[in-house]
Write a protein that binds this DNA or RNA. Sequence first.
RNA 1: AUCCCGAUGGUGUAAUUGGUAACACACCAGAUUCUGGUUCUGGCUUUGGGGGUUCAAGUCCUCCUCGGGAUGCCA
Length: 572
Amino acid sequence: MGKDNKVATDENDKVKKGPDFIRQIINKDLETGKNGTRVHTRFPPEPNGYLHIGHAKSICLNFGIAEDYEGGLYNLRFDDTNPEKEDTEYVEAIKEDIQWLGFDWKDRLFFASDYFDKIYDFALELVNSGKAYVDSLNAEEIREYRGTPTKPGKDSPYRNRTVEENLEMLENMKNGKYKDGEHILRAKIDMAHVNMNMRDPAIYRIKNATHHRTGDKWHIYPMYDFAHGYEDAIEGVTHSICTLEFENHRPLYDWFLDNVSAPCHPQQIEFARLNLSYTVMSKRYLLELVKSGIVDGWDDPRMPTICGLRRRGVTPTAVRTLAREIGISKVNSMIDMNFFYYIIREEMNETASRMMAVLDPLKVVITNYDADTTEEFDADNNPQIENGGTRKIPFSREIYIERDDFMEDAPKKFFRLAPGREVRLKHAYFLTCNEVIKDENGEVVELHCSIDPETRGGNSPDGRKVKGTLHWVSAAHAVDAEVRLYDNLFTLEDLSNMEEGKQYNDYLNPESMMILSNCKVEPSLANAEPGAPYQFLRKGYFSADSKHHSKEKPVFNRVVALKDSWAKMQKK
RNA sequence: AUCCCGAUGGUGUAAUUGGUAACACACCAGAUUCUGGUUCUGGCUUUGGGGGUUCAAGUCCUCCUCGGGAUGCCA
């Protein structure tokens, strides 16, 4: 089966996708020798939040490109230019997430704050050449002076300060002689420029704040547009890949590089960020979900954060496969969450150990089976793997089956257990339901069934067939477990498309987490390690929860359900 | 409103860069199966609109329409 797959893949390779538009640019640069033979990228997170799957797309792109080219290099650089928002706590979390994804930046871990001196020198260059000035307008005035997209701005009255005066004031800004917002260093470009970003953008703002790495050394901090190109140039980055919203900033990126003695001029290239249906990617929403307690922290298994996915049981391979399969373009698009689920299933089908786990147990007493007997059956660990091996599973008089595998008034198309009907207990016997026991409320509490001893192992000597095969677990041997079923966090596919007057939390999915605390599972599952993939037969892929699972009290997260064509049929 | 970017099926991405639209998902139908899983077979649907260049246009030009971004001392 796996072999057939390989052949098909090889055939597909002949018609495989061409390089994406960014790799095409790089190929061309390599041909023309623009950067010699170098390909050098970077991922520049701001340490002010946790990484999510959208970042993963960017990481896979940036780092993946460098890996694709011989001699290619990639940097991890923390863009820590705003001390008020950033914290070293995030630095470690981000590093851990990127490592988990399988990338190794080796000795190329950098911090923008390490370049503060060099960046300041670039500012001095601009001041000295008359291309930057200290403005003393306040924030509101600056906004007014900027004009609008249709109306040109006007020059600040401070625009023509002398180089000497600018130099002196900048020095004072740097040394903390002023209060926050009192002055600001601006580039002198063009207050009437059609691109608002070019209307004398801010270079340094005064922030008398303690930086998580430079402490109190600085009282001014560089703006993103001003600093970013220099950070890239200092590191010798060749291709500076960022998301679409920076497209309008590219002229500025280039301007800052062109007007000082930068060591090189990296090329900024923009691509469309990832949107996934039924979830949110914005830092603000994610933070609110955590702070309001709607989710159980950044690593809640419903969160699209890397740590959330990890805790849920999603593998790094699945994330990287997704990043590769969705491609890369400049079109804003929405990836169907089901596509991600498909990728996860495809991988786990190959890797997950099959296990018996009954999530909603219904007791079955096998009336013709001896109460003191226990026998063992061989069960496949993974039928997808040729020599996947088997394990022993115990069988006894009382077992549990899934409650919805029984139906009292079953339609013809229902292939599972019903009064008088025969099914197969996976790996064990054919089973017929003889009697339904109910409580005073009429609820089914127990089934009395009988097995056909001739069908031991799961096949009948007379060749008769059964339509359904059920998973089960021996009551005497089962371990109690908690299982958490997850679904999309939101009921709205595209959260940027909310009805008027509605908030994102009006669309929270009340069934995003269903905790089943009365599950019965195979004994060996108590020893499960978080991250190890399991398939609970006929139910889905699961993984032990890294936060709550213990041998004494097993807790499993559902990564993704199995396809269920019976459920689909019922919906119709 | 002005500027920038974009537009290929239900979704995402391709198309040897001007050579006659493909791959995957989804969906539908059937087969196989000790998981209603997997696998297999078949089906479905596509170049936003108008003009132009050309033997030939998804690709080039032009106008229009629609969508996204830009009016932080955030990144």
